[in-house]
């Protein structure tokens, strides 16, 4: 049977992708950001999953205001990098795992989560920047990726509790898949940041630290945090942190934090990154 081996969270800042693509990672501004992922790159090389279920949000790339699915799972064979206004990122095409993706879709829908099934979808920086941070610049990504897009652009986004419970449903789905696969779940976005209006640039280190602590130790309490608290305390785009609860819900209650990195700033954002390992 398939199993969830580990989960990780990371911010998915577009400027980080640009720094990688333009060969600027060694510059003094960027060096501390990328240094924070050195351990993780070694770690994942030694724990290579067969499949990553990558939870992210689309930033008006695949989904405009014409259709706004709350949860959308990519079931296609492949997903092309999106042109977000300056041409697609020069990164490999993302290879999906249609069989597992369809199984997760079926299992979670029967578990009463109304997933949107997507067979054609370009993937933007929300999905490709985390891959670049962990895998660098390979000719092909070293594992399959199932995109799971969450609406956090149009209000209301799903509640933290809904995300937490979806994570638990994904765990049940993966563990009932009849193939011998190592699966990771990644939650992306965050941490505190505000990209709009006169309050742009907001950072809240205390909120972020409490969130990182709670993610491992008391995720059920985090799942009760209302949207208004995210927006007030972590900035309008800090709402992306609800996606981290999908990752956490998919991991075991006693998952262990093996890596934590926090850095301010990358562009307009506080970078947060943790790795959680499931007990063997």
């Amino acid at each position: 049977m398939a199993r969830i081996t580990a989960g990780l969270t990371t911010s998915h800042i577009p400027a980080v992708g640009a720094a990688i693509d333009l060969g600027r990672t060694g510059e003094p501004y960027w060096r501390p950001v990328f240094a924070g992922y050195e351990f993780s790159k070694r770690w994942i090389a030694g724990h290579m999953p067969d499949v990553v279920v990558l939870v992210y949000n689309d930033h008006a790339s695949a989904f405009s205001l014409e259709m706004i699915p709350t949860f959308a799972i990519g079931c296609a064979e492949s997903f092309a990098p999106a042109d977000e206004g300056w041409g697609p990122r020069p990164v490999p095409v993302v290879r999906g795992h249609p069989e597992l993706a369809w199984h997760i879709a079926q299992s979670t829908i029967l578990d009463e989560f109304d997933m949107t099934i997507v067979n054609r979808m370009d993937v933007d920086h929300g999905l490709t920047v985390p891959l670049s941070l962990l895998f660098g610049q390979p000719a092909a990504w070293p594992c399959k990726v199932i995109p799971l897009a969450v609406n956090v652009v149009q209000y209301p986004p799903p509640t933290g509790n809904r995300c937490w419970n979806l994570g638990r449903a994904i765990r049940r789905a993966v563990e009932s898949f009849d193939q011998d696969l190592d699966v990771m779940v990644w939650g992306t976005g965050g941490m505190s940041h505000q990209l709009q209006g006169p309050r742009a640039g907001l950072i809240n280190r205390e909120f972020d630290t409490r969130f990182l602590d709670g993610l491992t130790k008391d995720p059920e309490a985090l799942a009760r945090v209302p949207h208004v608290e995210y927006v007030r305390e972590a900035g309008s785009e800090g709402i992306e942190l609800v996606m981290w609860l999908i990752m956490r819900g998919a991991l075991a209650p006693d998952a262990r934090e093996v890596c934590r990195f926090y850095h301010v700033p990358a562009s307009n954002t506080a970078v947060g990154h943790v790795i959680l390992e499931n007990p063997r």
Binding site: Y29, S192, Q194, R199, A200, G201, L202, I203, N204, R205, E206, F207, R232, E233, V264, P265, S267, N268, A270
Partner: peptide, 16 residues
């Protein structure tokens, strides 16, 4: 603005 971000960003206090 860039200097504010490098110095830790816009503080939450007074902006809640």
């Amino acid at each position: 603005y860039k200097a504010m971000m490098v110095a830790g960003g816009r503080p939450i206090r007074g902006n809640r």
